[in-house]
Design a protein around this nucleic acid. Structure first.
Lengths: 237, 237
DNA sequence: AAGTGGTCTAGACCACACG
DNA sequence: GTGTGGTCTAGACCACTTT
């Protein structure tokens, strides 16, 4: 484990556990240098990341203060799996695999920007997510078979991100996501129980690995009345 | 100007101008060290920021490659003003000031998390944004009078962010934004021309300065059929 | 073996806040 | 003046990719 990652997690745990509450100051960089026996740049790397992720505010001349925010939802801009979001929010949800089959082509409207490889073969997976016994999201995944040749049904029923990272050792790195509001179609009506034409939040994304290989295309269709998103954003200059 | 900021902008200009196109490699860190006569950590700071912002991908052992993406839209997670987004996208838009008055209280439903200061006095500003001659957004701003005591009507008609930063010397730093989909109300109907009950994208945000002072609360109401958002997201660990 | 990016160090100087 | 965070340096070692 890298040292700065370790410090990041340590401090984040302390914030989440309430050891440091909003408005309080964290120990200064110098104190943390002594506590962890590392150089200051290493401490700074951890603290700057915490600030960037919206947990703390660095105040020049004063110190590092804990920000006031309950993370009710996890932002789109954080690339977490549905499962991870649910676990962090202490939400119980179930997961129906509606379809799983190999050797499918990726639909045109899902090819966001790049992906000129027209001969890309993928595993098509359709899942429905239920929260509180209520269907809220339908996911359509197209997983690149050049990267994942076979997806077991058990993995699809659990967390595919977890399967990719822990069982296959893939390193998921980044995604590009497009969000629009669209009228519900026949499938939304059947799967989510919403009226045809009622609003649905559609997020189309393209996920890549650290070596830049394309892992998957996904279309997530959310009931608009159950959708909520929280973003923390920092200004660049 | 800090050195790493300078390198960031230089390289970003080269990417945007097409000097380096998607799939191409940027010069290696070592080359940039020589070019700019700085230490490697300084070059890295610039490059890591470019990677974080989704412009390039750092490939260990290989180099830094330019990613393939036309920034059609600017993500919610970037804290830019409406004006800035329009300028970057080469979109022409107009701006109607519908209301401007001091000494208003901030409505309860806009006080996202913190802001317990119930005696907070603010300047209330309502604006309508038109793109292509069509009304697409209504903004309700409540600007903290303890920070900005008076907002000239001319500044409201132009860009308030620009006024805050350049005329008042304030340093805008971060915001917390909540997004939901809600049915259009009477004001949406009148201002945006949409049917009552039709979907509206509502973004409520709270903006802070670098010294952590609260600058403003904003409620932006977008026509859902004109709304689109693109996010670039990186996975943490 | 040579080149790439990732981490880490020990030290320096700066700008800012607070007594 | 002391303490805080922000920038920068010159060097080191590592893991990875390519030749």
């Amino acid at each position: 484990m890298d040292k700065y990652q370790n410090i990041y997690r340590d401090m984040l745990d302390d914030i989440k556990s309430g050891k440091y509450t909003s408005g309080e100051f964290l120990p200064s960089d110098t104190k943390l240098v002594m506590k962890y026996n590392v150089s200051r740049e290493t401490v700074r790397k951890a603290m700057v990341n915490l600030a960037h992720d919206g947990y703390v505010q660095r105040l020049k001349g004063k110190g590092t203060i804990v920000l006031d925010r309950q993370r009710v939802a996890i932002p789109m801009s954080q690339l977490k799996s549905y499962r991870e979001v649910m676990v962090e929010g202490n939400i119980t949800s179930t997961n129906d695999v509606l379809f799983l089959e190999e050797n499918h082509e990726v639909p045109e409207n899902l090819r966001i920007e790049s992906a000129i490889d027209s001969d890309l073969m993928s595993t098509k997976l359709i899942r429905r997510r239920n929260v509180g016994g209520e269907a809220t999201v339908i996911d359509y995944d197209y997983i690149n078979q050049a990267v994942v040749d076979h997806l077991p049904r058990e993995a699809a029923a659990e967390s595919i991100f977890n399967y990719f990272e822990h069982d296959l050792g893939l390193q998921i790195d980044y995604a590009i996501k497009h969000m629009t509001i669209e009228p519900a179609n026949q499938q939304d009506h059947k799967g989510l129980g919403v009226a045809i034409g009622s609003p649905v939040v559609v997020i189309r994304s393209e996920t890549h690995l650290t070596d830049n290989r394309l892992l998957s295309f996904t279309e997530s269709r959310h009931r608009a009345d159950r959708f909520s998103n929280v973003e923390f954003s920092r200004r660049r200059n």
